[in-house]
């Protein structure tokens, strides 16, 4: 697998108008934070991912900080802070 599988949940999914996508790892992107920045730069609704917005993330279904590495084949998810229970 050479692509990332990216998932979006809850209010973030609604703001982006998309529940997920497959994406070739953009050149120069090797961390979750860099990927987030790359996506936010698409403009319009994607600003919901911009720095300063309250966004959490997971890599391969584990909560991860934005300094976490991302590699082709990873499942990455972006979502708002959780509100279960």
């Amino acid at each position: 697998m050479t692509e990332l599988n990216i998932l979006y949940f809850a209010s973030l999914r609604e703001a982006l108008g998309c529940s997920g996508e497959r994406l070739s790892l953009p050149e120069g992107v090797s961390t979750l934070g860099a990927l987030r920045e790359h996506l936010a730069a698409r403009g319009e609704g994607w600003a919901a991912l911009a720095a300063g917005r309250n966004v959490r993330a997971a890599v391969n279904q584990r909560m991860a900080g934005f300094d976490a590495p991302v590699a082709p084949g990873d499942e990455v998810a972006f979502f708002p802070p959780v509100t279960g229970g």
Binding site: F9, A10, A58, F79, P80, P81, V82, T83, G84, G85
Partner: peptide, 12 residues
């Protein structure tokens, strides 16, 4: 319960 509230991916 406390950990579930902050760590389990659910959204209301």
């Amino acid at each position: 319960m406390d950990y579930l509230k902050t760590r389990a991916p659910f959204w209301k």
